[in-house]
Structures are given as C-alpha cells and as structure tokens.
Simulated assay, not measured.
Amino acid sequence: MKKIVMLCAALVFSAFASEPEGQEYEGILTTPECAAQGAFADCYLENYACGSDGCFKKIDAGERGKPNIALFQHATGKTYKVDVSKLKVSELGEGMNKNGVVIIGTLDDATNTILASEFKAPPPPKKSFFKGCL
C-alpha cells in the first residue's frame, strides 16, 4: 500500500514540476522603438544590440548595451517590454522580427514588463519545391 501511495505522490509532483510558471504571451519579438514605428520587417538588427537605427556610428566597436526587447501583440495592439535576464540572449535570435513567438512569464503591471521564464520560437517555414517554368 505504501508503494502505491509513494508512486501516486511522485506522479503528482512530477506533473506539477514540468509546467512552466506564468502566462503565455504570443506576438512579434522586436524592440520598443520598432514597435512604436510599426516597422517590424524593416527593423535593423543593430536595434537589438545598441537600441536604435544608426547607433553603431555613435558607439565604439565591440560595445554592447543591455538588450532592449519587446513583444507586440496584433490582437490587442499592446507592446510589452520583455525582461530576458533568466534566458540566454543567444537563443532569442531565432525569434527576432518573427510573428508567432511565445514568451512564458509573469506580467508586472506597474512597468508593463513580462518577466520571461521561457521562450518558444515559431517553427521554420516548410521547404517547398517549385515545379514549372520561370
């Protein structure tokens, strides 16, 4: 009887341990400046490194600032700042300027910031083969 109770307890704890903490937020991963301008596909990658278009002309080579990342939701029209201190910034490159990015975390209403605990990039597009004459 004890073995059954211990097995059930282990299954319950493992089910709760695997769930990510927080809510899911889906949208386009960009910078706050690009989201304010509505320039999602035209947002230069230097915005992620130093914060604005042309900022590499103003800073020394090799200097990098804190990543300034935002999530824009089309359905609501809201832009949330994303705190990525718990994530590896190198992994976020898969979702930059892409729609369908899912950020899992908790929302701080006072600063309108999502404290990210997990990141899911959208799947890559399927390969297609074009048959025909160009």
Rank of each mutant, 00 (worst) to 15 (best):
residue 1 M to H: 09
residue 1 M to W: 08
residue 2 K to G: 06
residue 5 V to P: 00
residue 7 L to D: 04
residue 7 L to M: 09
residue 7 L to A: 15
residue 8 C to R: 04
residue 10 A to M: 12
residue 10 A to P: 00
residue 12 V to L: 14
residue 12 V to A: 05
residue 13 F to P: 00
residue 15 A to S: 13
residue 18 S to V: 15
residue 19 E to V: 15
residue 19 E to K: 13
residue 24 E to T: 09
residue 26 E to G: 05
residue 28 I to Y: 06
residue 32 P to Q: 07
residue 33 E to F: 10
residue 35 A to R: 05
residue 36 A to T: 13
residue 37 Q to K: 14
residue 40 F to N: 10
residue 41 A to M: 12
residue 44 Y to C: 03
residue 45 L to S: 13
residue 45 L to H: 12
residue 48 Y to P: 03
residue 49 A to P: 07
residue 50 C to F: 04
residue 52 S to W: 15
residue 53 D to K: 06
residue 55 C to I: 03
residue 56 F to C: 02
residue 57 K to V: 14
residue 65 G to H: 05
residue 67 P to E: 06
residue 69 I to Y: 08
residue 70 A to Y: 00
residue 70 A to D: 06
residue 72 F to V: 03
residue 77 G to W: 02
residue 84 V to W: 08
residue 90 S to R: 11
residue 92 L to P: 13
residue 93 G to Y: 15
residue 94 E to F: 08
residue 96 M to D: 11
residue 105 G to N: 07
residue 106 T to D: 08
residue 111 T to F: 01
residue 114 I to N: 02
residue 116 A to Q: 02
residue 116 A to M: 03
residue 117 S to G: 15
residue 118 E to N: 12
residue 119 F to Q: 05
residue 120 K to W: 04
residue 126 K to L: 11
residue 129 F to E: 14
residue 130 F to C: 11
residue 132 G to F: 04
